[in-house]
Design a protein around this nucleic acid. Structure first.
Length: 540
RNA sequence: GCCCUCGUAGUUCAAUGGAUAGAACAGAAGCCUUCUAAGCUUCGGAUAGAGGUUCGAUUCCUCUCGAGGGUACCA
């Protein structure tokens, strides 16, 4: 059990005990939040429950805190876990972990190795995460980088938390869609909807691979073949350069081929959620909190994108996922209500979670440049990765919360890449590896750990044992940017330990203990970097 | 117009309603005869503005200003 949960339990027990003895009136106990205090002086964990109970208990916050602390310190478990539990104005209860407990945890880390941080909160649950899902009309841009690295890392976090996870990429490759037709027109040279050099190359590639002359193809077919070529290139790029593995590459066209589109229409009609107006078929999405009803089949008989969207999500749920997470850019934020309404209409309730990331603004020479795939103005993700390296690119994007509107300056990114904090974290790992190489004769094992009593040593352990909580919190709230910040904090704590405590010395027993701690740190660093898809170098 | 995000240090970003708002980069000053100085130590520097709710607001509510996105029988 995680230490946070244990504290929560203990506090709850203390409140209940006080209630039984009529020291506190009867009331329903609210959720007990355990947090990390900002200041080290306030201990390792802290709760504000006393202040929350003021109204219910009709007592002063500090009075409640003191009462609870009296109860808490009388418990046997408390004595084992904590050095100090104290009530502090204005009414916080602070917990300081005991060195004994910290040392025990270090053993646990070494024992569990790469399994450290795993939990069972997702046990038995199947989750699908769909991300990137860029249109097959051109290469991935830096804008796609956000969803790419976020999605990849989130799935790793979920896997570590016990979920069975599938990664899926959705290709909007339907011949009936406007963009594929327009792509075809661009390739045939009939229109210039999509620009960029790669468009000019496509007729040759189509000829080579499919033995077709684009001139003899319809716009739809030319677009479809062009899309297939682009898809292949993007898939290779994602696999080889981004090192992201998707389990499923889903084709929108397949929904048409398998008549899944018509089935949605049938369901909506049966549920009386579709109606004809002005020659078009409308979905009554206002019934599901959408701002207005949406056309699903145009008066010319072709479906709008709403329909395949619904069919696609219906298909996902028919595959038996307990939860489906979609990661979209803010340019699709307007579709959220409609899609949620759509799946509710089809009977899949609230199993869908849509995460929106804000756009990446491209800055050049201090000025914003409008990115446009259509106009061929953009920075590709490949350019960025080639320029700064995958580790830097991943860390850079992962550091931002999805809500942040990112300003991206390629020149600045290049200039700053060598100072990217990812190196700071990796350097900690390289230092550790170096120490372990030097100490080959002394095998790092969980021996003499009780000798670890220096503040720098204990602080390091404190950071290490946060890792499972970091993973669990992230699996719950999807705030993935927590990970890089944790990694930096852990590196800082390690570097501090390194400055203050020499690992290999004449004192063999202390050396062994410190080597064990260093080894535990290596394990956690590899874990957190691994989850983020970032390498942990042995040397730098 | 309406809807969704966002506005924090010179810059790029953090901060489940909590205690003295944190980092990194940039700037100033120090630290290598000892396990990697890609490191460590110290200093200066910020919540767009105005109200409100709360014991307590960067966080919640209202308004103003500013930025991005969306508002199609385009995707």
């Amino acid at each position: 059990m995680m230490i946070k949960d244990q504290i929560e339990k203990l506090v709850k027990k203390a409140i209940q005990s006080a209630q039984r003895k009529k020291e506190l009136p009867k009331f329903e106990i609210p959720e007990i939040v355990i947090e990390y205090p900002r200041e080290k002086a306030f201990g390792d964990y802290s709760t504000n429950i006393a202040m929350q109970l003021v109204k219910k208990a009709k007592k002063s916050p500090l009075g409640i805190a003191n009462l609870l602390v009296t109860k808490l310190v009388s418990y046997k478990v408390t004595k084992e876990l904590f050095d100090k539990v104290e009530a502090v104005k204005p009414g916080f209860i602070n917990f300081v972990l005991s060195p004994k407990f910290l040392v025990e945890q270090t053993k646990e880390i070494i024992k569990q190795e790469e399994k450290f941080g795993k939990s069972k909160i997702g046990k038995g649950k199947k989750v699908q995460v769909e991300f990137i899902s860029a249109n097959p009309t051109g290469p991935l841009t830096i804008g796609n980088g956000r969803g790419a690295f976020f999605g990849d890392t989130l799935t790793s976090v979920l896997e570590k938390s016990g979920y069975k996870v599938e990664r899926e990429f959705y290709w909007n490759d339907a011949k009936a869609s406007t963009q594929i037709r327009q792509l075809g027109e661009s390739v045939k040279g009939l229109a210039q909807v999509y620009g960029g050099d790669y468009i000019k190359e496509l007729p040759k590639k189509i000829k080579k691979k499919y033995k077709k002359d684009v001139k003899s193809l319809s716009a739809e077919e030319a677009g479809f073949y062009a899309a297939k070529i682009i898809e292949k290139e993007v898939e290779d790029f994602i696999k080889k350069k981004l090192k992201i593995k998707f389990d499923v590459w889903f084709s929108e066209q397949s929904l048409y081929d398998k008549n899944k589109i018509d089935k949605v229409i049938a369901v909506l009609k049966r549920k009386k959620l579709a109606y004809y107006k002005e020659g078009a078929l409308w979905f009554k999405s206002t019934k599901f909190k959408d701002d207005k009803d949406r056309v699903i089949v145009r008066s010319d008989g072709t479906p709008t994108y709403c329909l395949p969207d619904m069919a696609y999500h219906k298909d996902k749920f028919e595959r038996g996922f307990d939860k489906v997470i979609d990661i979209w850019g803010a340019d699709h934020a307007g579709d959220v209500k409609r899609v949620l309404g759509g799946i509710e209409a089809l009977g899949y309730g609230n199993k869908l979670k849509i995460l929106i990331h804000q756009m990446v603004r491209l800055i050049k020479g201090g000025k914003e440049v409008r990115m446009s795939k259509r106009a061929g103005i953009y920075v590709t993700l490949e350019e960025l990765v080639d320029e700064v390296g995958l580790d830097v690119a991943r860390f850079f994007f992962l550091m931002n919360s999805l809500d942040t509107h990112m300003d991206f300056d390629l020149d600045l990114a290049k200039e700053r890449s060598e100072k990217n904090p990812v190196f700071y974290v990796q350097y900690a790992h390289a230092r550790i590896s170096s120490i372990l190489r030097k100490a080959k004769s002394l095998k790092p094992q969980a021996k003499n750990l009780e000798l670890l009593n220096h503040q720098a040593e204990l602080n390091l352990i404190r950071q290490l044992i946060k890792f499972p909580e970091i993973i669990e919190d992230t699996a719950r709230d999807y705030e993935v940017h927590r990970l890089p910040y944790y990694a930096m904090q852990l590196a800082t704590t390690f570097h501090d330990f390194y400055e203050k405590c020499r690992v290999i010395s004449d004192d063999k027993e202390l050396s062994q203990a410190r080597l064990a701690l260093v080894n535990a740190t290596k394990i956690v660093l590899e874990n957190v970097l691994g989850v983020m898809g970032i390498s942990a170098p042995e040397r730098m």
